[in-house]
């Protein structure tokens, strides 16, 4: 990533992690600057979720470093990482189904002790997601998929993070809801200055909202660049945006090779 003199908020260096004998992350390095939305694109099994889990401390890396504003956090427990200002909004919402919506949100602030601040953040979350305020006393498991995703993001916000790791917020949502969620993600980034690291399969929406992007394949970063440039890239268009390339003969080539292999 371009170095603009300041230190990145999140810096991942040569990270490797394993599931037993299987190497899922094969030496990933990336940077997220303060105030940015950085997206990591990749297909199923590319290692996107594993990467986020390793960064947020749910999994421990075998090698490599993760540093949050300069201090190394790899191998720390998730509660200490949440305390240092990084929160992970997991894939598939993972809400607390039998707790009320409000209790779910309050659990997001578990590591915080200042009650007044927590209460004002709760108000803030309700401003961004008015539907959650309407359903505050309802059991979270009875919410629709989109509302549960909003709850998961809101719960993450309650930790008052400096950086938020979002794992596939578009999973299983209708195009309209995806648009709504991503509008809110962009607003949170602009208005609340929350830095975001966004992992997505839906490359189109992710590149629309992001400033910078990485492409992850089989545990390696194979490509990176400004989001606009990635959108223009032939390979990303072909393999992630589904644009069909015309060949000289005017037919689609089925055995296209990626240039990074």
């Amino acid at each position: 990533m371009s170095t603009n003199g300041t230190n990145p908020l999140l810096k991942v260096d040569n990270l490797e992690s394993y599931y037993g004998p299987i190497m899922a992350i094969r030496g990933v390095s990336l940077e997220v600057n303060q105030g940015q939305i950085v997206t990591v694109l990749g297909a199923n099994g590319a290692g996107k979720t594993t990467l986020l889990k390793t960064i947020s401390g749910v999994m421990d890396p075998e090698k490599g470093t993760v540093s949050l504003s300069g201090s190394a956090i790899q191998g720390s427990s998730p509660d200490s990482i949440v305390n240092q200002g990084m929160v992970h909004v997991p894939e598939g919402r993972e809400i607390f189904p039998i707790l009320s919506v409000e209790d779910n949100l309050k659990m997001g602030a578990y590591t915080r002790t200042n009650r007044a601040e927590v209460a004002s953040d709760l108000k803030l979350v309700y401003e961004y997601f008015p539907i959650l305020e309407e359903r505050r006393s309802q059991e979270a498991g009875t919410l629709s998929g989109g509302q549960q995703q909003m709850l998961a993001i809101g719960r993450g916000l309650m930790a008052k993070p400096r950086i938020m790791l979002l794992d596939e917020p578009s999973l299983g949502l209708s195009p309209l809801l995806i648009k709504e969620i991503f509008t809110i993600i962009r607003r949170l980034n602009r208005e609340q200055n929350v830095t975001m690291m966004l992992v997505e399969q839906n490359a189109k929406v992710a590149l629309d909202v992001a400033h910078y992007g990485y492409v992850l394949e089989l545990g390696r970063i194979v490509m990176s660049g400004e989001a606009g440039k990635l959108q223009q890239s032939k390979d990303v268009q072909e393999f992630y945006l589904g644009v069909q390339q015309e060949t000289q003969r005017g037919q689609r080539r089925w055995k296209q090779r990626k240039t990074w292999r």
Binding site: F96, L99, K106
Partner: peptide, 23 residues
């Protein structure tokens, strides 16, 4: 109590509790 709700949360979704920094 916060601890009691956290106990419920951890039993309903251990992984999510872990993500939220609940010990």
């Amino acid at each position: 109590t916060k601890l009691g709700v956290a106990m419920q949360a951890a039993s309903q979704n251990q992984l999510a509790a872990y993500y939220m920094g609940i010990p």
